[in-house]
């Protein structure tokens, strides 16, 4: 009896918690980020750009630190900074002909180094390095939600309208070129979109965890699907689902929100490995 009462008290508490606008915004923000990360992530991992989101996260940190140093609004600076940075990295990858993972490693470690040095000049930044590294999903404002909903729409339109081109490009580049696909334009458009998604998500999830949203749901979806369309939709769906359950987990046990969502993503991934019935792919 006592356990039953405790449980219902807990549920009442969580339900009440989600009455607060800040919790609703956090939940909605989490779902948007999960959908965007999952959707673009499904292409990102197949194109072996998983590290790219990591590098972008670290570069966003550099963007934010520079904005703080110069006394500008970090939210306004971080998006164009991320987009330009993404294009710069793409250019570098094409230009140097080095291994992608090695080059991305150079970029993210040096971004981090430069960011920390920049922050050391700022002295006491009120947001705090901790918030930048791990994010604060409860600090999501209405304007952030607007930004991410516009971006989500852009992602859906982009992937929806160029789906076949993206599929062919992911499968075999020469085949796509022979069909008249402008590979570098498509690649740049995708990278810019991915950079913006990472840039928008930094505030809620933080520099260190943002790549999980791109990589983990997509990998779980890959284990559970045979067809490309199914895989892509499932990846976006798992991204959203883990945001919902992650937020609940966080509210129930009073855990930090971003890491809770990532833990749920991990649980889904492990379930996809463990439950053979899920495993469409061999």
């Amino acid at each position: 009896m006592l356990i039953g009462e405790e449980l219902s008290a807990e549920i009442t508490r969580v339900v009440e918690l989600f009455q607060y606008p800040f919790m609703q915004r956090a939940l909605l923000g989490g779902i948007f980020t999960g959908l965007m990360g999952g959707l673009l992530g499904s292409f990102t991992i197949l194109r072996q750009l998983s590290f790219f989101s990591d590098a972008l996260g670290h570069s966003a940190l550099l963007g934010i630190s520079l904005a703080v140093l110069l006394g500008l609004n970090p939210t306004v600076i971080v998006l164009p900074f991320a987009a330009l940075f993404g294009l710069g990295v793409t250019y570098l990858l094409e230009k140097t002909n080095l291994w992608t993972d090695a080059l991305l490693n150079i970029i993210y470690s040096s971004s981090l180094a430069l960011a920390v040095i920049t922050l050391s000049f700022v002295g006491q930044y009120k947001g705090g390095l901790n918030n930048l590294l791990f994010g604060d999903i409860l600090a999501v404002r209405a304007v952030d939600l607007w930004l991410s909903s516009i971006l989500l729409l852009a992602c859906i339109l982009f992937v929806g309208l160029t789906l076949r081109t993206q599929m062919l490009l992911t499968l075999h580049e020469p085949l796509a070129k022979a069909r008249g696909v402008s590979v570098s334009a498509q690649r740049s458009a995708f990278i810019v979109l991915l950079s913006l998604v990472v840039g928008v998500s930094i505030k809620a999830i933080g520099v260190l965890l943002v790549s999980a949203f791109v990589v983990i749901p997509a990998c779980a979806a890959r284990l559970m699907s045979q067809t490309f369309t199914h895989y892509m939709l499932l990846s976006a769906g798992l991204g959203a689902l883990s945001a919902i359950f992650g937020m609940l987990l966080s509210a129930l046990f009073n855990l930090p929100s971003g890491p809770s969502i990532v833990v749920v993503q991990l649980a889904l991934f492990l379930a996809a490995i463990a439950v053979p019935r899920f495993q469409a792919a061999r």
């Binding site: 197949l46 789906l163 599929m167 062919l168 499968l171 069909r179 369309t229 792919a281």
Partner: peptide, 26 residues
């Protein structure tokens, strides 16, 4: 040569040959 870990069926590949690769609803 393609990445064999890519999730795609034969029908999906053949369908890509049919599609006009501009902007279109899937």
């Amino acid at each position: 040569l393609f990445d064999r870990r890519l999730p795609m069926t034969v029908a999906e590949l053949v369908g890509l040959g049919w599609d006009q690769l501009g902007l279109s609803l899937p």
